[in-house]
């Protein structure tokens, strides 16, 4: 499975390189065929980069096909885990939890404009704390609200940034 993933990533890089070359020649170059002061074509730099990327990505794909996948990051993760979380089911649980957390962050980003910063953030923090294993009800409620209000104060009053107010509420 990991081998397939590393090959897919390498293949996607090759596809990206081909896309850059085609886009440079087909889409950008015709728009810049004529320049008043003789400047270099706007497609030339991306084209050069596309060709370099294609060569490197092809080598990389070849390497990915012929050798074992790079698992250093996973090995480091496994080494850092305590004994009771190091089993396959323990690792799987953490991976699922990490992606659920990522999805939660995405949902938070989307909901912020609708619910407004305060409500969306309190919900996000409470849900995340719970998802990551906290069962401390003080942190899940007052803690989330306190952090939200502190962040809002720092961002809006100290740093003059604008935070979304929301359209639904």
């Amino acid at each position: 499975m990991r081998k397939v993933e590393s090959v897919v990533v390498a293949a996607l890089l090759v596809a990206l390189a081909v896309f850059v070359i085609v886009e440079s020649r087909v889409s950008i170059a015709p728009k810049t065929a004529y320049t008043v002061y003789g400047e270099k074509d706007a497609s030339e730099f991306p084209l050069i980069l596309g060709i370099i990327l294609l060569i490197m990505a092809a080598l990389n794909l070849f390497h990915a096909l012929r050798s074992a996948p790079d698992t250093r990051e996973e090995d480091a993760i496994r080494a850092s885990l305590p004994e009771h979380e190091r089993s396959p089911s323990g690792i799987r649980a953490l991976v699922i939890r990490s992606w659920a957390f990522f999805a939660l962050a995405g949902l938070f980003a989307v909901s912020m404009e609708y619910l407004g910063f305060v409500i969306a953030t309190v919900l996000f923090l409470s849900a995340s704390f719970f998802l990551l294993g906290s069962r401390n009800w003080l942190m899940l409620t007052a803690g989330s609200l306190g952090i939200t209000l502190t962040v809002q104060f720092v961002f809006t009053d100290v740093l003059n940034l604008i935070l979304p107010r929301g359209v639904i509420i």
Binding site: F101, A105, F108, A109, M112, F117, T121, F124, L125, S128, F129, L132, G133, S134, M139, G143, I147, V151, F155, L161, L163
Partner: peptide, 15 residues
């Protein structure tokens, strides 16, 4: 604890 720290960092990223 990381269970509190990680969501706060993610919040700072989004904001």
């Amino acid at each position: 604890k990381k269970q509190y720290l990680i969501p706060v960092i993610m919040l700072l990223c989004v904001v």
